[in-house]
Amino acid sequence: MSRFTIRKQKPKTFLLSLFAVIFIFIVIGFFISLKWGQATISWRILYEAITYQGQDKEHLYIQTLRMPRTITAFVIGVHMALAGLLTQLVTRNPIASPHIFGINAGASLSVVISLIVFPSFTLTASVYFAFIGAILGALLVFSLAGIQQKQHVRLALAGIAVHFLLSSLTEGLIIMNQHSTDSMMFWLVGAVNQAGWQEVQTLLPWSITGITIFLFMLPSFRLLLIDDDVALSLGQRIMFVKLIGMLIVILLAGSAVATCGPIGFVGLLIPHVARLLAGEKLGTLVPLTGLLGGLLLVYADFFSRFIAYPYESPVGILTAVIGGPFFIYLARKKGRASL
């Protein structure tokens, strides 16, 4: 019983120090990402660069490449983690995430189509394409499984089926157009290494929109924690809330996929870690999930530079290495619990 209450809500001091520690780690993550890369950069140059006191080659590496790249990694992490949390809330399914639910695969498919059919498409335009794909992917899953609660297995099966269907279509397109899509294989695992200020500019409006609606809807999302029947009897429009929830998922996940490709497992892993640390209360769970997601991706991006140094590896490889085993652990744990 006592364990139950602790998991529900941790003491304030614990939460405060938790946020402080995470904040410090994020700052450290930013600094090491700016400091280490292919070129060697001294602390002095780093200081000059971030205070915009220099225009040399080394300063430019930081100002035009490493800074936007690190910010992109952070923002993408926030997007993916929040989208994951929201998918889990809406479907009430602990193994749900945009990746497993065909949303990432749908977005990828339509981005690849847009790159093949309109090679001159700008990044901003492919974001809209990603939204369409994400919506279609989600619709396909829900039309197969229905939107009722407690359909975990059905929903997961439908999601994985749609995920594989759409991914295989994407891969087919890439094979058929290999000469123009060589580097898309790199992108398909999810990579932030090419991100510049343009990517940041494209992403930020969607982050702000998505997160604002999220916070605004927070009181209503609390309903998603209780049974559909109970919520209905309280006179709440549960379907409407769920719809808005999925809309935010599509905004966050779609824009992330369009800029950096489908980075897997962040959306699955982070909400669980956050829940473990801070309990179920949405007021702390939501910001914590976002920050942890950003934190994970900043560090994953940093380490991905050194897997095949001096050449880059897609950051998605690292998140998959961490997330894959975790997914199996989660599936096994839940499987036992339901027995």
């Binding site: 490493r66 580097s183 880059e312």
Partner: peptide
Amino acid sequence: QLGLEQLVETNPQAIFLLPAT
């Protein structure tokens, strides 16, 4: 595959671009 930072560090004195698109 090279990033811009790596290309600048490599600093070739001549480049032949073979665009695929």
